[in-house]
Design a protein around this nucleic acid. Sequence first.
DNA 1: ACACAATTCCCCACAATTCCCCACATTTTT
DNA 2: AAAAATGTGGGGAATTGTGGGGAATTGTGT
Lengths: 159, 159
Amino acid sequence: MSAVEFIGSSDAKVDSKGRLFFPASFRKIMQETGEAGLIMRKDVFQNCLVLYPESVWKTQLAGLRSRLSRWDRREQMIFRQFVADVELLTLDANGRVLLPKRYRDMVGILQDVRWVGMADTIELWPGERMNEPFMEPEEFSTELERLMNGESLTENESR
Amino acid sequence: MSAVEFIGSSDAKVDSKGRLFFPASFRKIMQETGEAGLIMRKDVFQNCLVLYPESVWKTQLAGLRSRLSRWDRREQMIFRQFVADVELLTLDANGRVLLPKRYRDMVGILQDVRWVGMADTIELWPGERMNEPFMEPEEFSTELERLMNGESLTENESR
DNA sequence: ACACAATTCCCCACAATTCCCCACATTTTT
DNA sequence: AAAAATGTGGGGAATTGTGGGGAATTGTGT
């Protein structure tokens, strides 16, 4: 089912009207897997936007909801926060999306952005420090080594 | 399916359109092991490109993802770093790959490149300083000694 | 409710890159 | 020597990616 596999990253420019070309490779995957809509929200942790194909979004929501009690005021608030500030994107005739100003401002997108395929989701990063890696190579290698050798990563494991 | 084992290196030229012949010896191995696609990625540490046969890539990715929580800020960042700067390559009718300009620029590939078989992956190095060794002989021997005396190199080794 | 500004939508044009086809030199195999 | 496979190169069509002009829509203040 979840054959959605967004791969790769690319750079792009947001034009003066806030429009942005949706990379052809991603569009292809959407078509192939029969996905129609795209849901966008600001990432919970990072300063970037996340785009979910509709089916992935639904799965996420269901997963989250199943963990949260409907009758717990606090948990209900968490859920609300997750669902609020969500935007449905549509492609225009040229295959572009319009990034509402509000969202651009949220993560500080001006001109340059970077698309990043994250398997079942897509991320959109402001492109100011685009050529810098997300992590320091040293740190990355250390963590990766640990991970691939079966040791648990950090103290907080939530599974 | 037998194990993929790319060995040897060879020099080649990128033409004016960024195309590059995929060495016949490597292609043969791809065929024999029934590999179709190639995933290319900028190495995090080195200034080179790494090519994974699709199955190798999938194994790597699956291994990583199964250990990473989507809801952990740090783990998500590791995954992000791993999948950023990744591209799907396809061979054209002549058995060439097109190296997107972005990637050529990332590692500084102009004309000459060098293919290097790295067992289950293939590396592609800019060939300007092609005849120089990757490491100083002195450093190489020291490191190798250290590695082979206890620390694990790949997941095949005990740890 | 009204005028006005900002935003979104729907056209069209155009540059850069990628894809597809064919030609040809060089090396290896028969 | 001929044939096949290996590398190199280029023309041009198709796709991808950028940009802009307004019309329609939404939102704002008075």
